[in-house]
């Protein structure tokens, strides 16, 4: 990704998200809220099925950020969780450079969409691009 306003990076960050990955994330994060692994609990409480943690969607999206900023290049990463992410969803993240600062850091706008084109996460990040 070039440090120029309007430069883009697009990456498929999840292909057919599995229930197993949701369970793996519950274990890794420690967040065992039953919405994210207990189908009966989720449907009893008004959802069609269980759904991903917002933080899993943010973590998956973070893989695209690591691809362009490197493992230690970020200064800030923020996200809003807009829609539920369901098992079977394929997620694509697009990063667009919104500003380039005098110190070489850049601001990027983040959008993660599902296979229907629905935006499930919106965010911003600031940091120094890898290799820059």
């Amino acid at each position: 990704m070039r440090p120029e306003v309007g430069a883009r990076h697009r990456q498929v960050v999840a292909e057919g998200l599995t229930r197993t990955q949701l369970v793996a994330y519950a274990g890794a994060s420690g967040d065992f809220h039953p919405f994210h692994h207990d189908e009966i609990y989720a449907t009893t409480h008004g959802f069609d099925q269980l759904f991903a943690h917002g933080m899993l969607t943010m973590g998956i999206t973070g893989e695209a950020l690591v691809a362009v900023f490197g493992p230690e290049g970020l200064d800030r990463y923020g996200a809003d969780f807009l829609k539920p992410v369901w098992p079977g969803d394929t997620l694509t993240t697009e990063l667009v450079v919104a500003a380039v600062h005098d110190d070489g850091s850049v601001d990027v706008e983040i959008s993660t969409t599902d296979q229907h084109g629905t935006q499930v996460l919106r965010g911003t990040a600031t940091g120094r691009l890898a290799g820059d």
Binding site: A28, M55, G59, I60, G62
Partner: peptide, 25 residues
């Protein structure tokens, strides 16, 4: 474990690894 859970499915053990962006959660 966390890297694999967020999609880096083949993440290897690195005794000096940097924490991924959302690891603090």
């Amino acid at each position: 474990e966390f890297k694999r859970a967020v999609g880096d499915l083949d993440a290897s053990f690195d005794p000096d690894a940097a924490a991924p962006p959302t690891f603090m959660v």
